[in-house]
Design a protein around this nucleic acid. Structure first.
Lengths: 369, 369
DNA sequence: TTGTATGCGTTATCAG
DNA sequence: CTGATAACGCATACAA
């Protein structure tokens, strides 16, 4: 690492020009065998690794795509984030009581991330991540936009104005957002229809007439669509349609628990609780079973997303599965299309969901493993 | 996106030189207010976003760090990875039986990733990810090394030889690996001591004399250290010390289940099963409770890692918690130190673990929520 | 405070 | 098949 070698060093050692070195690396077949071997030997000998910046600059493409995510870890702007503590060799033993700690609230995002990475990998692209935390968001996204060929962003992660600015440089694909008359490509899932079918199932298959919707953030378009699906099912069934969710959380399990506690305390737990996402449903489930209320016998609980945790709960959660991983993959795929043809009109592509009937609605007998 | 504007365009529009534009962006205070305003206006007007490649090249630093991860999603080299399917508007409803699907096997890695991102974010650095899948691994890491200022890699992700090559260009920090006489910086956790204390607890607090170790991959240094800790505890207690784990999995829950089934079938389930990681323990737990074997009354089960899922199981899993997020953070921190002082001797920094006593060893009464 | 000129390490175009 | 050489877009030392 003393003096990082460049093409010039390799060229000199191999006794060729830098053009040839470049060729050996990019288009080996255009170079004579003997020459190629000499160059490769020099590369190994010197420990040469091409500069990505120089290459991107010259080739006019970064070979990477950017992924913008909201602050999903609760770090936010905390300037006093404690420094890492190193070991002193001691191993304390502590009684660990159940607590309301954040649990797996980033499962959804992890999957999206993974899908993005997989598809990018398939096309030989790197993925660079930027998370919107606190105030530093502004420059971090500009910075990202400058170093990638395209950007995938979760809806509402980047302020509209800034997104517009960025989009003038690189194509942008928005995930899970509503089409708001913008010019970006969008990837969505069948939120409304999924929730409609889920709700209808509870009404028709289980004969429930008393059900409530536990919502997410009021400004979430996903939540809105799901609530509308819920209402539509009730309307079709001739049941009274609420004007708003019975409660609203923030999509976390912890909030789901608060809501559950409040409902139990109020004594107003309906026959079925249709939740806007899995984490909320799991939080509600935690409280209900803890309070001795049987699910699904006394109360039916359903979720939305199909995260791993919904499969691991007892009872297992009936939910609407959406292909989170495919969300990321589809985004990259769309990005590549656009990169290829800039003139395409803005697209919206939708991914399918499916209702997964499990224990928490009473379709399957609760079982252990 | 037609013609991406450059410093030259901004300079022209603002009636200044490119040097001034650059200054406005990098050192705003060195520029007169009026000038600065004009430039900023031009930037906004043109939708200018600086080129990351050009900047990195000129500044001789990438402003990003690379994170190398093993193939943790089972995608591997599958060339026929099915393309994403888009929605046809239908929402199928299916009975979803419990299956042996992969469940949350990337929890550990997700946390490491998150920690890395957080610390990088704090220092204004981007994080670029590369996953070692199948054969494409080779070029992907070289590619990464060329575009970052330093690399964080999980042990055994990159072949030794290639890692050596890469390390000649950028500093490398290895996570969770053993120090193998290499010149890299390392971050580890107290695997051995953690497992020793855990095992001693089972022996001493619960009076167990009949315990077995369920291991992970035979070539995992972490697993090896944990097994040694296990043995040491037995030796100290004057109990017979096994020469090898009673079974070996691959750290996944699915494998944990297979092992559990085999143990149950053989009728040889000991009083306590000390597992090398949480996923394995959870898989074992799935099978035991499914088979009507009571945990912890009949059999004690313990894990290692402290992933979220260990908190959500019933009974909740007694385990050795290691600060996965801090692993990532410490790695970045170490990288920055090295970047600052290239001459530092290779360091190994260790992170503390702690034994978390929960339901599966019988320390806490099993409870619902 | 601002401008000029040079270099950063590649790729790509054109000759040879 | 190989070699000059001109971009690529920005940062920065040095002048003015």
């Amino acid at each position: 690492m003393q003096k990082v070698p460049t093409v010039y060093d390799v060229a000199e050692l191999a006794g060729v020009s830098i053009a040839t070195v470049s060729r050996v690396l990019r288009k080996p077949h255009e170079v004579a065998d003997a020459t190629r071997d000499r160059v490769n030997a020099a590369v190994l000998d010197l420990g040469y690794v091409p500069s990505g910046s120089a290459r991107s600059l010259a080739a006019r493409r970064a070979g990477a795509i950017g992924l913008c995510l909201p602050d999903f870890d609760g770090i936010d702007d905390d300037p006093a984030l404690a420094p890492v503590t190193f070991s002193d060799g001691q191993v304390p033993t502590v009684l660990d009581f159940p607590e309301d700690v954040e649990l797996g609230d980033n499962l959804y995002i992890s999957e999206v991330m993974l899908g993005t990475e997989i598809e990018a990998w398939q096309h030989g692209l790197a993925v660079t991540i930027a998370v919107a935390r606190g105030s530093r968001g502004t420059d971090i996204f500009d910075n990202l936009a400058g170093r990638v060929d395209g950007i995938v962003t979760l809806a509402r992660t980047i302020p509209d104005q800034q997104l517009a600015h960025i989009a003038r440089r690189v194509p942008v694909v928005v995930l899970a957002g509503p089409r708001a008359g913008d010019e970006y490509d969008h990837i969505t899932t069948d939120n409304r229809e999924g929730m409609r079918v889920m709700t209808s199932h509870v009404v028709e298959a289980h004969g429930v007439t008393d059900l409530a919707f536990v919502g997410g953030p009021a400004d979430s378009p996903d939540d809105d669509a799901r609530f509308r699906g819920f209402c539509e099912a009730l309307r079709t069934a001739g049941l009274p349609v609420p004007s708003a969710p019975v409660a609203r959380g923030d999509y976390t399990r912890v909030q789901g628990r608060s809501i559950g506690r409040r409902l139990v305390a109020d004594g107003g737990v309906p026959r079925a609780l249709v939740c806007s996402n899995d984490q909320t449903a799991l939080g509600v489930l935690d409280v209900l079973t803890g309070a001795g209320i049987r699910v699904p016998q006394d109360v039916i609980v359903t979720g939305f997303d199909g995260i791993d945790a919904s499969e691991m709960s007892r009872p297992r959660l009936t939910t609407v599965y959406q292909p989170m991983r495919d969300l990321g993959r589809a985004a990259v795929d769309t990005l590549l299309h656009r990169l290829r043809d800039t003139q395409l009109p803005p697209q919206t592509r939708s991914l399918p969901v499916r209702v997964l009937l499990r224990d928490s609605c009473g379709c399957l007998p609760a079982q252990a493993a």
